[in-house]
């Protein structure tokens, strides 16, 4: 090895678990150690894992509520303004401001703006789309969509120390531990 060649930088550690009970306990332990830059991957939703990981409640509901209410208010105003000022037209002998006639569109736009916001915000908050991830370098990780459970701790976590973190994962009952190249 020449002086110019560095050891390849480690992205993080990937630990494999065999069942949901094991990863649940392991997550609680990693959480209690105070790690922040880490994640868990499971083949199906494991109920309560968010609590075991110590995840904070998502901001998504508040974003959806705000945009939903904005869309709702805008559409009600827009229909009133368009029917009353921009293009006043009597339809079916009803007054220009006919709230019942506005309700379906008002309601649909509330739902539409909420849904689109929920969808897009979910992608943005989750960091999607992500065509590549260091975990994809691991052969074992392919089974995350089948029957294996994984925890990965990133090296950028301030508490990350290759040996100590490895020992921690070992103590949580991980069956294999891999180093992930970045």
């Amino acid at each position: 090895m020449t002086a110019l060649e560095k050891t390849p930088r480690i992205w993080g550690l990937l630990a494999q678990y065999e069942d949901p009970h094991a990863i649940y306990k392991a997550c609680e332990k990693v959480r209690d150690e105070g790690y922040e830059a880490w994640d868990s991957c499971t083949p199906f939703p494991v109920h309560g894992l968010d609590k075991a990981m110590g995840l904070k409640p998502s901001r998504l509901p508040w974003i959806v509520l705000c945009v939903g209410l904005t869309g709702s208010t805008f559409m009600l105003w827009f229909q009133t303004f368009a029917m009353g000022n921009l293009y006043p037209m009597i339809v079916g002998g009803k007054p220009l401001f006919s709230l019942p006639a506005f309700v379906p569109v008002w309601y649909e736009i509330t739902v539409l703006s909420s849904c689109v916001t929920a969808f897009l915000s979910n992608w943005i908050l989750s960091g999607l789309p992500a065509p590549h991830h260091p975990a994809f370098n691991s052969k074992a990780f392919e089974r995350v969509t089948d029957d294996k459970f994984f925890i990965m701790i990133e090296s950028q976590d301030p508490k990350f120390d290759l040996e100590k973190t490895r020992a921690l994962l070992q103590s949580t009952g991980a069956t294999t531990i891999e180093e992930l190249a970045s």
Binding site: G92, P100, V103
Partner: peptide
């Protein structure tokens, strides 16, 4: 409730 109302209101 609104579905019932709007049809009746609109048709008059």
């Amino acid at each position: 409730a609104f579905s019932q109302f709007i049809l009746i209101w609109y048709a008059n």
